[in-house]
Design a protein around this nucleic acid. Sequence first.
DNA 1: CGTACGTTTGATCTTTCTCAATAATGGTGG
DNA 2: CCACCATTATTGAGAAAGATCAAACGTACG
Lengths: 251, 251
Amino acid sequence: MDSATENPLQLLVRRLEMHQALTAEDRAAVLGLPYKLRRLEAQGYTLREGDRPDRCAVLLSGYAFRHKLTGEGARQIMAIHIPGEALDFQNMFLEESDHNVQMLTRGLIAEIPRPPLEELVLTYPNVGRAVLIFTLVEASIFREWTLNIGRRDSRSRIAHLLCEFAYRLTAHGLTPEGLYELPMTQEQLADATGLTSVHVNRVLQGLQRDGLIERERRMIRFVSWERIRDVGDFNPRYLHAREFHERIALT
Amino acid sequence: MDSATENPLQLLVRRLEMHQALTAEDRAAVLGLPYKLRRLEAQGYTLREGDRPDRCAVLLSGYAFRHKLTGEGARQIMAIHIPGEALDFQNMFLEESDHNVQMLTRGLIAEIPRPPLEELVLTYPNVGRAVLIFTLVEASIFREWTLNIGRRDSRSRIAHLLCEFAYRLTAHGLTPEGLYELPMTQEQLADATGLTSVHVNRVLQGLQRDGLIERERRMIRFVSWERIRDVGDFNPRYLHAREFHERIALT
DNA sequence: CGTACGTTTGATCTTTCTCAATAATGGTGG
DNA sequence: CCACCATTATTGAGAAAGATCAAACGTACG
């Protein structure tokens, strides 16, 4: 199995199998889906508010984010996506998208047309269950973000976001423990936490000054996982990745 | 069909049919689910964070809300539920609940045990699709709340919540247009908007002083739907109830 | 090697919070 | 039915977190 010819949807299969066992037949059905590869620059959209979602993008490389805008034009980022994640399950069964999905960095996506994917989800119970669980976990993350933005102060808020991102990257083997690149500007970080970029800058400096993190460009190093976790009030329960809680030494 | 003996799960069937057509067979399968009625007082829990969700409550009467707590004990309310809604689809396929669901007022619920419901969702594609859509719409509401709390000022935030609640009640025929009872204390309103109850009080008075709403106890009357909608930057797209946009004259 | 974008800094301002007290309300037991 | 108590709503004064505005500084990369 030459990796150059490996079906990129393997990445999706692996992701789905994290929450739900699939049979060989299920796997084959997923891998049999038609798809089209597309390379996107930073800021490229995979879906815009108001569009009819007629395809589902799977993020193969690079990072993406979800956001929506107020009538005044203020932006709120509501999720960050890492490679392997399906970007459009959230919209796939709805008539029109209620938010935007955009690339944070340049990257590669596989676009699966909606009809065969919908068909697959409804006819293969294990796949359907996996997709349902995947969307429920995403919803759980939305809830945690609401809590984060509504009820934590700026320092905890940012520490929490740093922890979540580190945890997810590490859990999926995308980065060594405690050191990673945060692929966002401070302005995007502000839009994800309900703050301004000026304040984000000051909070980051504060975390560094207090010896919780080290920064070099966008690389972040956690000096002590326990301490940053406590500052961020981060409890990974809401990620529903129980098996990881042991697999990685973060906790 | 004596209404005293009508199956209370009819309410669930009607709700599911709003987004997905069901056959007579689908309907019969839902109505055939076992359930147990339970009367709950205000503040009664249907589900607690950390519990294994082994049943799904359908709200037959009264109001409920979802919330979670920070490590410091601050509470964030992330959803309000009105009669007819299923309260636990969000957790039903996960191993443990990541948040609490509690009654806002006293009310009646029907509890459906998890195994037959799970079985139903996975074997009847139309029902599965309906449940999936229902959870996706809930997720969309979570996103709008994140935007509301992260990027709108206190006045818009509260006006938005008032609009959403009014819209949903009206769309489901639970209240006449522009007049309804908001079944929450100002403290709960504060926990839903990321504010303090003192500030909520002042904002409500401001909305009243400016002739946008009238209040009497917890009854709210919109003086002008257009004006309150504009203040709250409320666009019902995220509720994905397109057929209502015309059915009710709110817009 | 210059330009656009992102980061950092300082000063000032505003929104919202905090703390504390008072007033209204509704529900309950007698 | 009434008095009492707990909860909720309201008000005021002062404090604080975070926003705003404006400018300077870095740095990637075309």
